[in-house]
Amino acid sequence: MLDDRARMEAAKKEKVEQILAEFQLQEEDLKKVMRRMQKEMDRGLRLETHEEASVKMLPTYVRSTPEGSEVGDFLSLDLGGTNFRVMLVKVGEGEEGQWSVKTKHQMYSIPEDAMTGTAEMLFDYISECISDFLDKHQMKHKKLPLGFTFSFPVRHEDIDKGILLNWTKGFKASGAEGNNVVGLLRDAIKRRGDFEMDVVAMVNDTVATMISCYYEDHQCEVGMIVGTGCNACYMEEMQNVELVEGDEGRMCVNTEWGAFGDSGELDEFLLEYDRLVDESSANPGQQLYEKLIGGKYMGELVRLVLLRLVDENLLFHGEASEQLRTRGAFETRFVSQVESDTGDRKQIYNILSTLGLRPSTTDCDIVRRACESVSTRAAHMCSAGLAGVINRMRESRSEDVMRITVGVDGSVYKLHPSFKERFHASVRRLTPSCEITFIESEEGSGRGAALVSAVACKKACMLGQ
């Protein structure tokens, strides 16, 4: 009897593995994704193909990295998701002549009506938060230079001027797309009239992360975010950046690689679950690469896999709870928690219980395998993109072996128990001629924006502006 049951459990697990095998990517698959990513990057950089390229390769006008001589107080704003952060950054000489960066910050959550109302409502709310922060720190009387981390696709015309191309991540505030974001912020500050600010720089969160990590390690020339969304930036040779005049030196390019796949480059790798996630998203047909990796989508992918296993009578005796059938019910943090389970399955059992399920031991094991399959594919897909960037940098610099540091931020990278190990191992397999160091950014977005502002202020002083 026991043997029969054991055989049935083994057969069930084997069927589960057959279904989950769809998520496995072979090294040849990853090399294919990497080569296609490089081709799209090239198209994004070139003037004649930029418009139709899915990977936009947006110039950021960040050319210099901090040298350690900029000092002063800077205000930093960070808008990239449902939370908005205001930070005071003091850049100065530390002990023994070292450079020191001290920060104080406060988080504000953005109400739904500000995210989806008008641009005026959104930026009025942001300036209200700045006003509140300055009151708390008794700094209303000071006109501070301000660095703005704005983590949406922007076409820069200068370091302090950028046109919002399109909202992502659930934002829909009308009247912002096609307009200068810094102008919208300046107008809102003017409307309030109770404080003055000098907006000197606007950067993407990947750029802010790279600059913040450069402060720790001067070989950091790539910034990457794996959180709600997924994106990367890197220092490109100016001669390859056709959208900006000049051939000397390097400029940081914001790849906006989340949109890779929007022209069909990933079609052969998309599964039924991916198509369902895409169809029910706020932007169907867009940001397809990001939807395979980002935390906004990972939990939902797992939920759809679990429903398939229920329908195949391989999980929960073929019956799903009402909660499990509800879109968004299986949160991405559950994926991390399930994979963090120590082996007694308590954590998995508790999560499934909150979803109205009474799982068996085998159910718990199957749910864990589903989570591992989805998150491992995410790590491997992400590795193909980064390997594409790094191999490109090595080739354009004609280096036999390139040493490089990548600064990384984002909740999936930082909080998932195995993502970074799987990701690092896969990147290294795909970049055999590179020695890569990964560092995690601390308060990256805010500190990085302030350091970019410090560079901009120093330049302005040198130019006598």
Rank of each mutant, 00 (worst) to 15 (best):
R7E: 09
M8G: 12
E14N: 15
V33G: 02
M41Y: 13
R43M: 12
E52M: 10
E52R: 10
S54M: 15
V55I: 08
S64K: 15
T65A: 09
T65W: 06
E67C: 11
D73V: 00
L79N: 08
L79Y: 03
G81V: 13
T82Y: 04
F84E: 00
V91W: 05
E95F: 13
S100L: 09
I110R: 05
A119H: 04
F123S: 05
I130E: 08
S131Y: 05
D135L: 05
M139R: 04
K140L: 10
H141C: 07
S151H: 12
I159C: 10
L164Y: 13
L165T: 14
K172A: 04
S174P: 03
A176C: 08
A188H: 01
M202S: 02
M202C: 03
T206C: 10
T206L: 03
S212E: 12
H218T: 08
Q219T: 15
C220M: 01
E221G: 02
G229A: 14
E236K: 00
Q239F: 04
Q239L: 01
C252Y: 00
N254R: 05
A259H: 14
F260Y: 03
G261D: 02
E272D: 04
V277M: 04
S280Q: 15
P284T: 15
E290G: 11
L292G: 12
G294K: 02
G295T: 14
M298C: 09
E300A: 06
R308C: 01
L315C: 10
S321H: 14
R327T: 14
F330M: 04
Q337F: 08
E339C: 02
D344C: 10
D344I: 08
R345F: 14
I348F: 01
I348D: 04
Y349D: 05
E372L: 03
S373M: 10
T376L: 10
R377Y: 01
A378I: 09
A384I: 14
A384E: 00
L386G: 05
G388S: 13
M393D: 11
E395L: 11
V401F: 07
V406W: 00
G407C: 08
S411Q: 14
K420C: 11
K420G: 11
S433G: 08
T437W: 10
I439F: 04
E442Y: 14
G444I: 13
A454H: 14
K458G: 13
M462G: 12
G464T: 13
